[in-house]
Write a protein that binds this DNA or RNA. Structure first.
Length: 468
RNA sequence: GUGGGUGUAGCUCAGCAGGUAGAGCGCCGCGUUGUGGUCGCGGAUGUCGCGGGUUCAAGUCCCGUCACUCACCCCA
């Protein structure tokens, strides 16, 4: 016997939880569609050369390669003579953005721009698994891709989508934190940190501010690796700890940053963009309590170029960002000469779901089955009537399971209870004789008898009742 | 890739101056005839991660190995 075990770093759920997960997926999908986005899917694996265009060492370290047996043998033969092992022909996607870039570049002429697509699929990263981090996980992406141009107005749509979806998900109050990479670049240039490498290193450290605190950041930046002057570090700290407390405050903070500038064009541009984005976010109806400026946010350094977003749950800051994204100048530069600027966000649903479960925020939504009614077998001789009742319920649009193997009624009720099925429609000799059905609500511990002809409508009424 | 921690029943874990394994939860059955979840009573379940060593004797000590896990790196 082989011990049955999932590989580590995957999120495999039991049905009760899967239902809760599915509902979250549905809420996100419907949110994306409500904002006028179109669905696409791309293959779980891509050609290695397509996926690894950036050939960053980190990327290759984290990617899973896929190799057919035939190709594997072929590459082995070639290996004996060639200059080292060739890359496997395929690799599993590690995000949905690179496949999107390939997709848009490949189908550019069949798509209409701005191209608004959403995509909710699994991605794979060969990281060492950690608490709440997976090697296989869902990303729910939504992006707007422009041809040649995409006004910054689109950047304002993302917070509006996030707001709509997280309101629907009802997992508590949240804050959409907004920043702008141009503003950051300008700010650090003004401080004399102009070297791209050094700037990136500083941004990486600053990004950990919320996790490690200002003191840690201060000692890191003044330390050997960076060697920044105390005065400069204090300016950085003052800057990155900014969190606006409302719309007007956000605009005031921007004005303040602009006043403090030594004339960086990038900073001015970033400020102007943020101003426009914030103004439109408000116009789109996002309450000002739900968004703020946060100058510490940098996000992934590789391609975000303008607006960046990060969303956190107010009551559970330890969960970290539950949705993030930003603006990129040119999505598919590796695949096409066309300039395709874009903006988008991504919800890492597996991680979010796992965190919510850990925080005990899922209890209410789990334990409920998609089966709405169970028709037990009270008497084996009444099988035909029992099945007819099940059909009647199904035609009435009620998700119904009929017990086919019978047994004691008590056991069947226990089965329903454990399976999270709320209603049982009992049809025994008595009911058949009377032309009735007994409906039992396991949650409210209540039961009553209705005429068989009215069972669907009666059950519909009951399903609409609260559980407790 | 670097550094810690842990591996005992399905789950969470206890057992430890070395003497051939336990609790809670869960699971199964019973509390009669068509009523679950509560309650009472009864029951099943373990190559004590794997391999080697020390010992009369190892879950308990030593070595190795594997797995898992936490943190760092990174997170498009």
């Amino acid at each position: 016997m082989i011990t049955p075990r999932t590989p580590s770093g995957v999120l495999e759920l039991l049905p009760a939880e899967q239902i809760a997960f599915q509902r979250m997926l549905d809420a996100i999908r419907s949110g994306y569609e409500r904002f006028g986005f179109l669905p696409i899917e791309t293959p779980v694996f891509e050609r290695s050369d397509v996926l690894l265009t950036k050939t960053g060492g980190e990327t290759e370290r984290q990617v899973y390669f896929v190799q057919s047996t035939g190709a594997l043998e072929k590459s082995r033969e070639a290996d004996t003579s060639a200059e080292g092992p060739a890359l496997p022909e395929m690799a599993l996607r590690f995000d949905l953005t690179v496949p999107l870039a390939r997709y848009v570049a490949e189908h550019e002429h069949q798509l209409t721009f701005p191209f608004r697509r959403y995509q909710m699929q699994r991605v794979y990263r060969g990281e060492r698994p950690q608490r709440g981090r997976f090697r296989e996980f869902y990303q729910c992406d939504v992006d707007i891709i422009g041809k040649d141009e995409l006004s910054v107005r689109h950047d304002a749509e993302c917070p509006a989508i996030i707001h709509a979806i997280f309101t629907d998900l009802a997992i508590g109050s949240f804050t959409i934190q907004v920043n702008n990479r141009k503003l950051l670049r300008g700010f650090y240039e003004d401080l004399g940190i102009t070297d791209a490498e050094q700037q990136a290193a500083v941004l990486r450290e600053v990004d950990k501010l919320d996790k490690r605190g200002p003191d840690h950041l201060r000692s890191t930046l003044t330390g050997a690796g960076f060697g920044l002057a105390d005065e400069v570090v204090e300016q950085i700290l003052a800057f990155v700890q900014v969190r606006s407390t409302g719309h007007d405050d956000a605009l005031a903070r921007l004005a303040e940053v602009e006043r403090g500038s030594r004339g960086s064009a990038s900073l001015a541009e970033g400020v102007a963009e943020l101003r426009e984005v914030l103004t439109l976010v408000r116009a789109l109806g996002v309450p000002e309590s739900d968004y703020c400026l946060n100058f510490s946010i940098a996000r992934g350094l590789d391609y975000y170029t303008g607006t960046v977003y990060e969303t956190t749950l107010d009551e559970h800051p330890q969960i970290g960002s539950i949705c993030s994204g930003g603006r990129y100048d040119n999505l598919a530069g590796q695949y096409t000469r066309s300039r395709l600027p874009g903006v988008g966000i991504s919800i890492g649903l597996s991680r979010l779901f796992w965190q919510l479960r850990e925080a005990g925020l899922l209890e209410a939504s789990t334990g409920e089955s998609t089966v709405q009614a169970l028709v037990p077998q009270v008497d084996a001789e009444l099988l035909d009537d029992q099945l007819a009742l099940a059909s009647q319920l199904r035609h009435g649009g009620i998700n119904t399971e009929a017990v086919l193997d019978g047994g004691k009624l008590g056991k069947q009720l226990r089965y329903a209870d454990r399976a999270g099925i709320r209603f049982v429609a009992i049809l025994g000799r008595q009911e058949v004789a009377d032309g009735t059905v007994t409906l039992k609500d396991l949650r409210r511990q209540d039961q009553f008898t209705v005429p068989r002809t009215e069972v669907v409508s009666a059950l519909r009424v009951e399903l609409a009742q609260p559980q407790v």
